[in-house]
Amino acid sequence: MAYEHPSREKIKELLQNTSVIAVVGLSDKPDRTSYMVSEAMQQKGYRIIPVNPNAQEILGETCYSSLADIPFKVDIVNVFRRSEHCPPVAEEAVQIGAKILWLQLGIHSEEAAEIASKGGLEVIMDRCIKVEDSILLPK
């Protein structure tokens, strides 16, 4: 099954129904893309949950070592990891009952997409969540 991006209208609907975004690979360094994108999304009103085993807190939120450690529901799992690391993240996203697996710009994994899709998740790959949100839900 070849991956196809959801329509822009579908992505807009998904973002409108999102409040909690777990960010796998969120750096605690303010000059990193993952930090800048997550900070911007936080400023738009989304709750950003850092998944980084090497930090205690990022953007004022407690860091978790894995998705399984997050003690509440997550809408989107946003991934800032190299493509080859995405299949296990997709498996965890399915296990925690996330709604969406979002692989950031430059990240593409057919295997992760298949795992997530079979687990009932919407999949978005190789797109920047901040850019999509800015275009589809300008405030």
Rank of each mutant, 00 (worst) to 15 (best):
V123M: 15
D75R: 10
W102T: 06
I96P: 00
E114A: 14
V131L: 13
E122D: 09
A68K: 14
G97T: 05
C128F: 12
A116H: 14
E91H: 12
A68N: 13
V74M: 13
I100T: 15
V131F: 07
Y64N: 11
S134R: 08
I96Q: 05
K73A: 15
K118R: 15
E111K: 15
I100W: 05
G97I: 06
C86I: 04
P87T: 04
I129Q: 05
V94Q: 05
P88M: 07
I129H: 00
K118G: 06
L121C: 08
C86T: 01
E84Q: 15
E91W: 09
E122H: 10
I129S: 11
I129Y: 00
I96Y: 01
R127P: 00
V74P: 02
F72P: 06
I135A: 08
V74E: 00
E132P: 07
V77N: 01
P88L: 11
K118E: 11
I96H: 05
F72H: 12
F72R: 03
S83D: 10
A116Q: 10
K118T: 12
E114W: 02
A112P: 01
I70N: 12
D75P: 00
H85D: 15
D133S: 15
I124V: 15
P88A: 12
I115D: 00
K99D: 09
K118P: 04
S134P: 09
C86E: 01
I107F: 00
R82H: 06
G119W: 13
E84S: 14
D133R: 10
G119V: 11
L121D: 09
R82M: 12
I76Q: 09
I100K: 04
S65Y: 03
S109K: 01
H108L: 12
V89W: 09
M125T: 01
L121F: 07
E91N: 14
V77L: 12
E122S: 10
K118F: 01
D69S: 13
A98N: 10
A113K: 15
I107G: 04
I115N: 01
E111P: 00
G97A: 03
E92I: 15
